Computed example of a mutant assay.
Amino acid sequence: MTESSRPSDPAEGGRPLRRDAALNRERILHAAREIFGQQGLGVTLDEVARHAGVGVGTVYRRFPTKEALIRALFAQDLRIRQEAADRALAHPDPWRGLVDFLTEMSADLAENRGLHEVLMLGAHTSGPIDSARGGMLPFLEALIRRAQESGDLRPEVTPADIPVLQHMVYAAAQFTRGQQPDTWRRYLEILLNGLRRRPGDPSLVTPSLSNAMVERAMGITRAEETPPRTTKSVPHES
């Protein structure tokens, strides 16, 4: 996953870790970020330990399950995404702010298979991760609203379009990886040109997906959407 601009919180159970334990935790997170980014989330904790150069027991003491490790990495990635959104919202040019945000996010996803699987495919899901992924929606709504109010972004564009476009850029990155790894930037430029509003452009005919449809495609399941369990009645023996 993406390298954080801040160190992770070296504490467990509210107590600071010893220096050697904190260093081991950072080493594990760094190794996991690299190997998940290269190979995806199918990597085991044993493989993470080998990549980090620490014993398997050390990994399991810091992260008893792979879900706990993924949550720690994703928390860092989400913080980076939120910081990027804040910078974009503060940019004096609404269109430039949106472009910067989409370009930074595209770069992260294009170069990081594990992050793509968590964000876009629901390959590893849990309540906290689903809530965090869904929590980016207000940032997208604000960025899109600003760019539309400034007259730079097509009025038909919705927040639900953005994850689909990001998935398209990731597919381009995978398709060209063995030839020219940065070619995905060309296709992002083409998409951005299509998003920009210009006088005389015909309106988009096909409607966008709803936010709920995109969340289902991304594997996000809201607690209230979980169907209740039904129990079969068992006839009493006479």
Rank of each mutant, 00 (worst) to 15 (best):
G135M: 01
G135V: 03
M136D: 10
L137M: 09
L137H: 11
L137W: 14
P138G: 03
P138Q: 06
P138M: 04
F139A: 11
F139R: 08
F139V: 01
L140K: 09
L140S: 09
E141F: 12
E141R: 15
E141V: 15
E141I: 13
E141M: 15
A142Q: 14
A142L: 07
L143V: 06
I144K: 11
I144D: 14
I144H: 12
I144E: 14
R145S: 04
R145Y: 01
R146I: 09
R146E: 14
R146H: 15
R146K: 15
A147M: 06
A147C: 07
A147S: 13
A147D: 11
Q148R: 13
Q148M: 12
Q148K: 15
Q148V: 09
E149P: 03
E149Y: 06
E149K: 11
E149G: 06
S150C: 08
G151D: 02
G151P: 02
G151W: 01
D152W: 07
D152F: 05
D152H: 10
D152M: 07
D152K: 03
L153V: 05
L153G: 04
R154L: 06
R154N: 09
R154S: 04
P155F: 10
P155S: 11
P155D: 13
P155R: 14
P155C: 07
E156C: 09
E156S: 12
E156V: 08
V157T: 15
P159H: 08
P159A: 05
P159E: 08
P159R: 08
A160G: 11
A160E: 13
D161K: 02
D161W: 05
D161T: 01
D161V: 03
I162V: 15
I162P: 10
P163I: 01
P163N: 00
V164P: 00
L165W: 14
L165R: 12
L165N: 06
Q166Y: 05
Q166K: 08
H167T: 07
H167L: 05
V169G: 02
V169Y: 03
Y170N: 02
Y170T: 03
Y170G: 01
A171N: 00
A172P: 00
A172T: 01
A172L: 00
A173N: 10
Q174F: 00
Q174L: 02
Q174S: 01
F175D: 01
F175A: 07
T176C: 06
T176F: 14
T176S: 14
T176E: 14
R177A: 09
G178D: 14
G178C: 05
G178N: 12
G178K: 14
Q180M: 13
Q180W: 13
P181F: 04
P181Y: 04
T183W: 13
